[in-house]
Amino acid sequence: MSKGSKRGGEADELNLVPVMNLVTILIPFILMAAQFISLAVIDSTLPAIGAPVPVEEQPEKPPLNLSVVITDLGFTVAGAAAVLNPEGPPVEGAPPAAPAEGEGEEKGPTIPCLEEGCPTPQSYDYKELVRLLGVVKDEYSDEENVILVPESRIPYEVLVLTMDSTREDPNTMVDGAPRLLFPFVVIAGGAE
């Protein structure tokens, strides 16, 4: 106050000190509450191993039992063989070909890793998985479920990236949004 009066007839400068105090207190407070990363969630229902849980899930047989097995060799895409692959084995690389059938254990993965043994989560071939699932979706456009069967050693990150790949195709846009593939994920117990 004394400083202000010293200026006498001149227009008083606004006393900003209380405002400064306020702002200085506000900043740490907001800084604490600020979220610099934004979060999202991926929904998934109970895995098949959770047996005695009261969920009204009828064991009705879906027409396409699409499942993606994740191993340290790559992805194996399987489905109800008779439905998926009526006219014999799929043709390698041909776009309308259906993916491999369920009993392909000795054949190795449908989509092998980009690098031998899949040392990092990025060495899985997600692009090819998206392409393949796009082909399946073309044929079974009503189907929305996919079962993921990861091996025990598979890192969680690979699981999330696989869920991203099975959910939507970022390269194909439908009405301004990525084309939905199989958004409903069920995570199964998985192979040891």
Binding site: L46, P47, G50
Partner: peptide
């Protein structure tokens, strides 16, 4: 954590399933 093996996740999910939690929401960074 993204580096956890699926075996741990599975055991946690199974346990949650037994405790009547059946809708899982995996939190991820957008």
């Amino acid at each position: 954590d993204k580096r956890l093996p699926f075996s741990v996740i599975r055991q946690v999910m199974y346990t949650a399933g037994q405790a009547q939690f059946s809708e899982f929401r995996f939190v991820v960074i957008k």
